[in-house]
């Protein structure tokens, strides 16, 4: 899509974060921005607080394991603006050696659980997260199952009942 047909959101992000934006497109009518890891917290705050955008919802936070691509992971955020009825997707590439992104917990309360889930499933850490532990799986579980190198049927030994006294 040519730059002139971009939505208000993309134009504003281009203005403010032009140097840190890696890619930008609106395929299938869905605004998508790829930004560098360092800019995500600032961008999220900008999206939330800018009076022309007001993306007050963090609709989804997840990751994708691209496996062969470098950098390997991509953390994907979906934002929704109730007031302007607009959506934007923000993606942050994260390398395998240092999978760490700034946490959004100071901005949205739901980020706490969504980030815990992403840590649980992909092993991506979130800096400044108050309580980063597994959400869906149990503490004894080894590895991160949604990574492409974790086989779907690889079971781990059953954990016995816990001693209530311990």
């Amino acid at each position: 899509m040519p730059e002139a047909e971009w939505s208000k959101t993309l134009k504003k992000i281009q203005e403010q974060f032009g140097d840190r934006v890696i890619e930008m497109h609106a395929q299938l009518g869905q605004d998508t921005v790829v930004v560098s890891k360092a800019a995500i917290f600032e961008l999220a705050r900008f999206l939330r607080d800018d009076p022309d955008l007001k993306y007050n919802y963090l609709m989804d936070l997840t990751a994708v394991d691209h496996f062969t691509r470098k950098p390997r992971f991509e953390v994907v955020y979906h934002f929704l603006s109730l007031e302007y009825n607009a959506r934007v997707r923000v993606k942050v590439p994260v390398g395998e050696s240092d999978p760490e992104v700034e946490s959004l917990t100071p901005l949205w309360k739901i980020a706490n659980w969504l980030e815990r889930e992403t840590w649980d499933m992909f092993g991506i850490k979130f800096k400044n997260h108050p309580d980063l532990r597994r959400l869906l799986l149990y503490p004894e579980f080894q590895g991160h199952p949604l990574r492409k190198d974790y086989p779907v049927t690889k079971r781990q030994p059953l954990v016995g009942p816990k001693d209530p006294q311990a």
Binding site: L137, Y138, F141, R155, Q156, L158, V159, G160, P161, K162
Partner: peptide, 13 residues
């Protein structure tokens, strides 16, 4: 699930 199996066993016992 693997996570709830210990609970089930406790209930059974």
């Amino acid at each position: 699930s693997q996570k709830i199996a210990p609970v089930l066993l406790t209930v059974y016992e």
